[in-house]
Simulated scan of single mutants.
Amino acid sequence: MEYPSLPPGLLTTTQAAQACGVTPATIRDWVRRRILHPAGGSPRRPYYRVDDVTAAQTAAKPSRPGQRSEAA
């Protein structure tokens, strides 16, 4: 079930993922890693500001210990 209607400038997790070209799991990972913060909603159905999503997309992502590098 999707939101009936969000105010302009806000995106659901799925919409944010589509806008960034990533999966919804990546958006949730950015939230968990504090790269992106929900602008409202509920814990199960958050929504995000468009500006925050684009900033998170371009933000430097901290690497995790043991994470494979892109060159490998």
Rank of each mutant, 00 (worst) to 15 (best):
M1D: 05
E2M: 06
E2Y: 03
Y3M: 08
Y3R: 13
P4A: 12
P4N: 02
S5R: 15
L6D: 04
P7K: 09
P7R: 08
P7Y: 00
P8R: 02
G9I: 12
G9M: 10
L10C: 07
L10A: 06
L11P: 01
T12W: 04
T13W: 05
T14Y: 02
T14R: 13
T14I: 04
Q15T: 02
A17L: 05
A17H: 09
A17R: 06
Q18H: 11
Q18T: 09
A19R: 15
C20T: 14
C20F: 00
T23P: 00
P24N: 08
P24F: 06
P24Y: 03
T26M: 08
I27Q: 07
R28Q: 13
W30A: 06
W30N: 09
W30G: 04
W30M: 14
W30T: 01
R32T: 06
R32S: 10
R32C: 02
R33D: 15
R33C: 04
I35A: 14
L36F: 01
L36G: 03
L36I: 02
H37M: 01
H37N: 11
H37A: 02
P38W: 12
P38I: 06
A39H: 08
A39S: 15
A39L: 04
G41W: 07
G41P: 06
S42D: 13
P43V: 01
P43H: 01
P46T: 10
P46V: 08
P46F: 07
Y47R: 07
Y48I: 00
Y48D: 12
R49F: 04
R49T: 05
V50T: 14
D51E: 15
D51K: 11
D52L: 01
V53P: 13
V53G: 11
V53H: 10
V53C: 04
V53D: 11
T54R: 14
T54G: 00
A55M: 07
A55H: 10
A56H: 05
A56T: 03
A56Q: 01
A56N: 06
Q57C: 11
A59S: 15
A59F: 03
A59Y: 02
A60E: 14
A60M: 10
A60H: 12
K61D: 08
P62F: 12
P62V: 09
P62D: 13
S63I: 06
S63D: 11
R64N: 04
P65C: 11
P65L: 15
P65V: 15
Q67P: 02
S69N: 09
S69I: 00
S69Y: 09
E70Q: 04
A71C: 01
A72M: 06
A72L: 10
